[in-house]
Amino acid sequence: MRNLLKNKPLLIALSAVVLLALLAVLTSKERKLTFIESAIGSVLQPVQAFASRASDSIIDFVETLLNTTDADLENQQLKIHVASLEQNLSEMDALRKENERLKQLLAFAQNTPELSYVTGAVIGRSPGIWFDTFTISVGRLQGVERNMPVVSPAGLLGRVSEVGATWCKVVSLIDSSMNVSVLVDRTRDSGMIRGTLKAGTGADTLELYYLPSESDLLPGDKILTSGIGGLYPKGLNVGEVLTVSRAGESEYNATVRPTVDFKHIEEAMVVVGMPAIEETS
């Protein structure tokens, strides 16, 4: 014990861990970012954005090369020529895809004139499976506030949890802490949806619960946001029912596949036209 107390580095490390654990507990609830946190994020945001774009281009280029089947592999000059053309094609393909995505975003924004949006690029995602958050390149300077809904043309993405000057953190719809009030499009029954942990399956799923006992839910039913609570706009796509099971006399459980492909989101729209929910103490 005495030796342990004489070990200065160990004591410093232990004290640091205790203080950090205390800090983690104190900051685990919803909170505002401090100036330092916001500044760190703002400094790293361009670096992350550049790295994200660069890696997307490199991965797309390598994928295009790997998918090449009709190139004459015996001719060295042709190979170089084909590689150069493939690179051009890859760049054009990336631009075409970006153009399509932006057109979809524009169409979505035009179809919902009652809401106003700011669009940002996804610049990073949380590591691991326990928390599902991502950062986007718009923040307080663009009018983003906490709890604002984040959407894509395919449907609901999540909500803003923390806001920096030029970036913000978004909790995904598939995060296990998310609870969203929804309704079944066909039957208009209300329920709640929450994220589930995906462990080694690679598939994102949601769990639908609190459905009325007389509900007639079928696989393939569309799930939309109900607008109850005022946090999310009504009628946004959430997902499609995959499986339905009855846990008890009055309890329904259903697995829902989200309409958004969370693995491939590259742009996100923050709904800034809705009033943000007031903070509760």
């Binding site: 654990a21 800090l23 983690a24 946190e37 990073g124 953190k169």
Partner: peptide, 12 residues
Amino acid sequence: VLFGRSLGLYTA
């Protein structure tokens, strides 16, 4: 700061 739910968890 960038991705955590609470400050200090990953640090510790």
